[in-house]
């Protein structure tokens, strides 16, 4: 693995910049198996140069509002985005997602996420909502297959022994109920410690339930 550096609009993320995102966030008070899996993974990650994410910031990225930074989006525009998300997600059924196996990759550690068709369909609806408000230029981020990052690397290390340790975790999968998404004002900030790794934090703008019309 190598040090993770976030990117915005194809360029290195400027320290402290805020960008709006739509995330699916787990409720670990409800998804107990997921909480246990995360704890086991974090334990395996401890010997490695990885900033272990606080469980409070665990998420699956659905989309980024990437045409501008959050400071350029007014409260009225944020409300318009919220309304669009409510409309586009009102008839999307909740998803019983399956997270796992844990994967050590170049940027850190993540949980693979499925089922792909349901999560991709949710992402498509979120994208439609964002594009309906801000135009197609707002989609500039390709996060690839849906996943939950458990920690970002702040240094270089051999991922192989970490992957072997992660493979020994059992059960290797856990469920996560996705019955809402969150519009968030997300900030990446470099830590002021020896690692200088990147830490994520956010302020919630809105919580949008799925299947509101049912």
């Amino acid at each position: 693995m190598r040090r993770f550096n976030p990117v915005f609009q194809g360029l290195p993320w400027e320290d402290g910049t805020h960008v709006l995102h739509v995330y699916a966030c787990p409720d670990l008070t409800r998804d107990h198996d997921l909480a246990a899996l995360v704890t086991a993974c974090h334990q395996a990650m401890k010997p490695y140069p990885i900033t272990i994410d606080d469980p409070a910031v665990l998420h699956i990225t659905l989309e980024m509002v990437a045409d501008t930074t959050a400071d350029q989006i007014s409260p009225t525009e944020r409300q318009t985005l919220t309304t669009a998300l409510h409309e586009h997600l009102a008839d999307v059924a909740p998803i019983e997602a399956l997270l796992g196996s844990p994967v050590a990759n170049k940027a850190g550690v993540l949980l693979d996420s499925g089922p792909d068709p349901a999560i991709n369909a949710l992402r498509d609806r979120v994208r439609q909502a964002l594009v309906s408000v801000r135009g197609p230029g707002t989609l500039q981020h390709d996060g690839g297959r849906a996943h939950m990052t458990l920690g970002y690397a702040w240094g270089n290390a051999d991922s192989d022994p970490l992957q072997s340790a992660l493979r020994r975790i059992s059960p290797s999968h856990a469920t996560m109920t996705i019955d809402r998404v969150h519009l968030l004002d997300v900030c990446f900030r470099q830590r002021h410690d020896d690692t200088a790794g990147w830490a994520i934090s956010w302020n919630q703008i809105a919580e949008i339930p799925l299947n509101r019309r049912q």
Binding site: R2, N105, K106, A107, G144, R145, H147, S159
Partner: peptide, 9 residues
């Protein structure tokens, strides 16, 4: 690493 990233993303 490059292959791992391709597989994941």
């Amino acid at each position: 690493d490059a292959l791992t990233r391709t597989l994941v993303t």
